[in-house]
Design a binder for these strands. Structure first.
Lengths: 230, 230
DNA sequence: CGGTATCCCCCGCGATACTG
DNA sequence: CAGTATCGCGGGGGATACCG
């Protein structure tokens, strides 16, 4: 994007921030993604070349830092400037939560993206030792996007799009929209199980302490998020 | 701009906010511009058709309200949603002030834009009754962009790019960069007169109470601006 | 895994002119 | 003043293939 030829700080900020995908890349980093392919998984519709291009630009702009480990591994992270810019992202998200919710289209409810979000917010410390397998069935989706599994083990959570072969401890049966609404805090697991939009099948224990380990999106608690802004 | 196909509030917010010029249009409205041509003057590099297109989109997005008076006059204003989005703009500006200042190019110091900003922040209440004429001479500019006049009268401020024919009460002689730096609070009138980057010629009285009527950009006081955010 | 390299299309947007 | 109409191009960015 070409510049605005204005000295105004809003214009100079917009020259960096107001590009396609940029807030979403920063959002991913704020959520802890540091690897190229993780950033890409958080933005599946973005082409790798464009992601690469943006990362280079953001690095040059002092927002993102690229570190190459001695084992050739590459990590991206936010600089202090980038973390500051994160507050703009947060505020934009708070605005979107309040004012852009009505603009959600069917296309927006991508279950894979939802699962990727859920994956990184699962509180593994609330699980018993050993392996726990969760499965999610989205009734409204075509067969190739209907089923997902989360395998929780040793503090790690793996997202699978094919049956991992392990016994399933708890199954969520619902629609992508219901699940996303729960995720965003527009409704609760309790409400949606009551009205039948969500069915939980499996371990009674996992069901009973679900609020301990199923951590919703940071946007599900706008008040807390707002207070986290300086 | 096409959507992101993500339910995330940041993505939905970005679909509206992250378009070219959008933050600058909202900034203009936050500063009080309500007429089409005023919005355009605040963004001189933007083509009228694009401004029209953006206003239509922002209206449809519930950010901007268009009102047609009975005398066919048209006014644009921010809705509640738009004022909320203004906080994102403000925060982006605060970020730009701190982190994007080093990216300023020669092209950014447009004296006309600067004068348009100064014009609307002049505190007319601090002036004596009658007409006061200020002139600004930018030494670094070519002749067609070197001189501007502000005619203050009856609480109104008019910006002229040609000599208005009235006696001038006070003249600023400086460069566009020095003036912009004063405007943004990076330096002060006092400092720049001391070091010779700014010369004030004319009414001793207007010079002596210049801090009363020459009101700098809202971004010149970041602390106050930050506190204005909810 | 962590990107590049291409290709190509589309349309965003800048420029200019014009209208009521 | 408040826009619309038109035109043309540049490059943003989507898709896909490929590489070390």
């Amino acid at each position: 994007m070409k510049g605005y030829s204005q000295f105004c700080p809003v214009a100079k900020g917009a020259e960096i921030f107001n590009e396609r995908w940029t807030p979403l890349i920063i959002r991913e980093m704020m959520c802890g993604s540091r690897r190229f392919n993780d950033l890409k998984r958080g933005n599946p519709m973005m082409s790798p070349s464009l992601l690469s291009q943006r990362l280079k630009f953001l690095e040059q702009a002092g927002v993102v830092e690229k570190k190459t480990g001695n084992n050739e591994s590459v990590e991206y992270s936010l600089t202090e400037s980038g973390r500051d810019l994160g507050e703009v992202v947060t505020r934009l998200g708070l605005w979107g939560l309040r004012w852009a919710r009505s603009r959600l289209t069917e296309d927006d409810y991508d279950p894979q993206l939802l699962m990727w979000d859920i994956r990184r917010r699962i509180d593994t410390s609330a699980f018993p030792p050993g392996r726990v397998v969760l499965s999610f069935m989205f009734r409204d989706m075509p067969s190739n996007r209907r089923a997902y599994w989360l395998v929780v083990e040793n503090g790690d959570v793996d997202l699978c799009i094919k049956f991992p072969g392990f016994d399933v401890d708890l199954t969520f049966v619902t629609t992508s929209k219901t699940m996303a609404d729960i995720w965003m805090g527009h409704t609760t697991i309790r409400k949606e199980t009551s009205n039948g939009n969500l069915t939980l099948e499996g371990s009674r224990k996992l069901k009973s302490n679900i609020d301990d380990w199923f951590t919703c999106s940071v946007f599900s608690d706008p008040e807390a998020l707002r207070e986290s802004l300086t």
